[in-house]
Design a protein around this nucleic acid. Structure first.
Length: 605
DNA sequence: GCCGTTTTCGGCCCGACTGTTTTCAGTCG
């Protein structure tokens, strides 16, 4: 996990004293807790103490509510890992914009030393060594010292270590951030396929955070079952995109690609594939919990096997249990298989124990795509071409939802063209024949003042109405929330698309008051979209989960502007599964009849 | 610092790889 120091420093909340009318974001609290964890670690505090801060930071990042709202409800203790001390620290941050404990720590450990530990190959011990021995307190100073050969003279260091640190600093300058899922997944598939071309590589899986469906990826984890690890590893490191080999062993190797992405490969014999896949899929916190449960059941669990432990606490290695599948791993410790997208230690283990895991939506459950564009606005294909492509992908119905008039750059439709388009939809529908239906809808803009682009008497005539925020996304919280509520409260609007307006790693989400938004949606019965475009993946999983818990319907759509984008549905499904979304709650898994009935009950024919 | 069909204290997962050692510490996942 990387700490975004720049973001933390630039956040006004850390510099302002005595703020009362300023909201401290969840992100800021998480960043400060992460820094506390790092500083405690450098200070040599107990691993359990600093891990407590790190765990809570991670939990806060995945929270679907504002900490400030939770503090008012007195529900901070509901966050796993938050006890008396951390709840008080969160409240201090929310109330004052700063944390005295954090500032005290900074007097003992310079933040530049924390920053050094973010360099690959530099941990708390090395960072402390450079700081205490050479008085180095910034990454720039560390780079200079490495160039001058001063690091190699230290105890426990040598020329090779110095060179590695130098390379890490320089490579980190090129590639600091995480990688979007939409970039990492195709690369992972490509490299895995390349390795599997080798006869000795029997089968494999993409593991890690890609398998869990996270919207951004730190590194790619691959797993291969095979009989000749050396040959498989050699094949792996000889892939054309490999720029640097971090390490190459018999069971694990790690490389860096030309684009800066790190890829790790584990190779195990097929009989151990299940334990290895379970291990490599993570998350770390899920695995810690699973291994604790294994211990209570009398086993030590690692990536190779489940090993029984006798009363004296000794491993009975000769009795180890091999698992070729993940199902076997979970079964041996008394749990049903848990879908990888749920494995974040976010309640999935408790649900598994209670036999209450959700029946998650799958790609093949989807019968319709309710959000796509054509040449009528900014799409590249005609209604007919989009329909044919959707039918070829196995869908039963689609809804054409071109932009409305306010999106002038997207050639948005005025009322006249919207009505003309309806006639063409009817013509193409007839031409398509039985067994496939094209619905006519719109993706209607919500104007800056909250006004909708079409009047109610026009909306009434459409099969399905989407409302979207496309601009003015940096309005203040009260303004943009009111604007969105205006759309949610219109009975003719059936769905809000890509609600928060985020673009992964390039645009922050709008500052919506999500408590108000969810409450309004629960009242009106409107659906929320999970947009499958890998640049959006909006709603994010934690909000999708909250929607499910509140009974708000979900729709998973591609927002396609080109035929190839229809395949993006896979990303939306992964996001929905991370959000614990069961298929019966997804309106486009329903038959056309049921879907029409649902829309009809919302106030239209 | 958290947590509890081992509850208010004593626990809190497990192994691979590298470089510097000469048996292991540090880092990473």
């Amino acid at each position: 996990m990387e700490i975004a120091l720049a973001r933390l420093y630039n956040s006004p909340t850390t510099n302002v004293i005595g703020v009362d009318n300023m909201t401290v974001s969840n992100q800021t609290v998480a960043d400060i807790f992460d820094q506390c964890a790092k500083m405690l670690q450098i200070k040599g505090e107990s691993v359990h103490r600093w891990m407590a801060y790190s765990r809570v930071a991670e939990a806060i990042r995945d929270l679907p509510r504002d900490l400030s709202a939770m503090a008012q409800d007195r529900t901070l203790h509901d966050i796993p890992g938050v006890g008396k001390v951390l709840a008080e620290k969160i409240e201090e941050l929310l109330n004052t914009g700063q944390l005295a404990f954090h500032q005290e720590l900074q007097k003992e450990v310079p933040l530049g030393v924390v920053e050094m530990t973010e360099i690959h190959g530099v941990g708390p011990k090395k960072a402390t060594l450079f700081w205490k021995q050479l008085n180095i307190t910034t990454v720039a100073q560390l780079e200079q010292a490495a160039l001058e050969g001063r690091l190699a003279t230290l105890e426990g260091m040598g020329k090779k270590s110095e060179q590695k640190i130098l390379e890490s600093i320089q490579s980190q300058k090129k590639h600091r951030d995480r990688t979007p899922l939409g970039v990492a997944l195709p690369i992972a598939k490509n490299i895995l396929a390349y390795v599997l071309e080798l006869d000795e590589a029997l089968h494999g899986e993409i593991a890690g955070s890609i398998r869990r469906g996270r919207p951004t990826i730190g590194d790619v984890d691959l797993l291969v079952a095979g009989t000749n690890p050396e040959a498989i590893m050699q094949r792996f490191v000889s892939h054309g995109e490999v720029e640097h080999i971090n390490g190459q062993g018999k069971t694990k190797s790690s490389v860096v690609l030309r684009n800066g992405l790190q890829v790790d490969l584990w190779v195990l014999e097929p009989s151990r594939f299940g334990t290895a896949l379970q291990y490599a899929s993570g998350s770390q916190m899920h695995n810690i919990r699973i291994r604790e449960i294994a211990l209570k059941a009398g086993y030590s669990l690692n990536e190779h096997a489940l090993t029984p432990i006798n009363a004296a606490g000794e491993l009975l290695s000769e009795q180890e249990i091999l698992c070729a599948t993940e199902e076997a791993v979970y079964a041996h410790i008394g749990l049903p298989w848990i879908a990888p997208e749920l494995r974040e230690d976010n309640g999935e283990i408790e649900a598994a124990k209670a036999q209450q895991l959700p029946h998650l939506v799958e790609l093949q459950h989807i019968r319709a795509d309710l959000h796509m564009h054509t040449t009528w606005s900014d799409g590249s294909k005609t209604i007919r071409e989009m329909a044919e492509a959707a039918r070829a992908r196995g869908l039963e119905y689609i809804c054409i939802t071109d932009h409305s008039i306010t999106s002038r750059v997207a050639n948005g439709l005025g009322i006249d063209r919207l009505l003309q388009q309806r006639e063409e939809v009817q013509r193409v529908n007839a031409a398509m024949g039985n067994g496939f239906t094209i619905l006519h809808g719109t993706e209607m803009d919500i104007q800056l003042n909250g006004t909708l682009d079409y009047p109610d008497d026009i909306l009434e005539q459409l099969d399905f109405v989407i409302a979207s925020l496309h601009f003015g996304l940096s309005q203040d919280r009260a303004t943009i929330t009111k604007r969105l509520l205006n759309a949610i409260n219109n009975p003719h609007v059936d769905m809000i698309a890509h609600m928060r307006g985020q673009l992964i790693m390039s645009r922050e989400p709008a500052d919506l008051d999500m408590d108000q938004v969810f409450a309004a949606a629960q009242k009106t019965g409107i659906a929320f979209e999970i947009n499958s475009n890998p640049k959006r993946l909006d709603l994010e999983a934690q909000y999708a989960r909250r929607a499910v818990e509140m009974g708000i319907p979900i729709s998973i759509n591609t927002d396609s502007h080109r035929i190839e984008q229809l395949a993006n549905l896979d990303y939306g499904i992964r996001t929905a599964r991370r959000g614990w979304v069961p298929s019966e709650r997804v309106i486009n898994t329903w038959s056309l009849e049921r879907f029409r009935e649902w829309v009809g009950k919302r106030g239209k024919a």
